[in-house]
Design a protein around this nucleic acid. Structure first.
Lengths: 157, 157
DNA sequence: ATCAATGCAAATAATTTGCAAAAAG
DNA sequence: CTTTTTGCAAATTATTTGCATTGAT
């Protein structure tokens, strides 16, 4: 496991302690699972991974821990307009506000752009608001690969 | 009622006829309600308005008509990361891909920007995709008005 | 007459919650 | 010991669907 993930785990445990919340076995299993992956995950996936580490983890505990993870700032909740939310455990390392969702491979590519940030800020000002957050969602397709038949990076779901 | 809205209604009825779908009393009530407003609405709001015109309109029919409205291109479905979707009946007049959601007044301001479109296209290309759609969501606050106490444009929900 | 469209109530599906029992500090 | 956390099952909430009946063409 990369160093940053260990660090993230430690940071989250500190976050719990600071708030006088308890570091239970179930929370450990969930934290370990969340920061083990480099990928986005759903609540259901997190439940599965956590149960591999500790079979006693319940769906309710996962759903109760997720808001703590996002409140700590170490995990970012992403609503991509699907029926379930995604969670990004890399957020504190690489804060991304833009996603490309590929229609072909169903992949989510994240990036951030200073230009978009500036543009968003400028537009907000112009319309009488001050920017708190912004997110750009792009739906696209890997047309080059589609011509070859299937997208090489194809993923299920 | 402004001319464009009448036009939109007519266009939608044409859309139904072209597909050999029937123009029922319930659908009329729903269409009239949808194109009467200048505002975004939810499925629940549309049901309420439609029932004012025709008490027989059921929630199921509203939910079955909404996909037709969006398929026609006259209404745009907006997922703003809340628990319910919003629908924009002005979409064909003013196609907007960007929203500012105000934390203070809970208002949704729409706009579109050629710059953002270009930027999105450029970023997609750079990352190996071709853009299909894009949307920019900005969460902001009207800080000027907040200093005065409450936002003058404040809305419930 | 046809066959699409309706209302109703039951079904989904993701997430939330009440509660008594278990465990952390 | 006190208070938080847990698992379970039931509740919520927006939306969808099956089905017998109604209604547009």
């Amino acid at each position: 496991m990369p160093v940053e993930r260990c660090l993230a785990k430690r940071k989250f445990i500190d976050f719990l302690r600071r708030r006088k919340l308890r570091v239970t076995a179930q929370r450990r299993a969930i934290i370990d699972s969340a920061f083990e992956t480099e990928e986005h995950f759903t609540a259901e996936q997190l439940l599965l991974w956590s149960r591999r580490r500790d079979a006693s983890v319940s769906r309710a505990t996962v759903y109760r821990t997720l808001p703590l993870l996002t409140a700590s700032g170490l995990v970012r909740e992403m609503d991509l307009g699907r029926d379930h939310k995604f969670y990004d455990p890399n957020y504190s390392d690489h804060p991304n506000h833009s996603h490309i969702i590929c229609l072909d491979c169903n992949r989510i590519v994240e990036f951030d752009s200073e230009d978009i940030k500036k543009l968003a800020r400028r537009m907000s000002r112009k319309l009488g608001f001050s920017l708190r957050t912004h997110r750009l969602q792009i739906v696209g397709s890997c047309d080059l690969l589609k011509r070859l038949g299937v997208c090489a990076r194809q993923k299920p779901s």
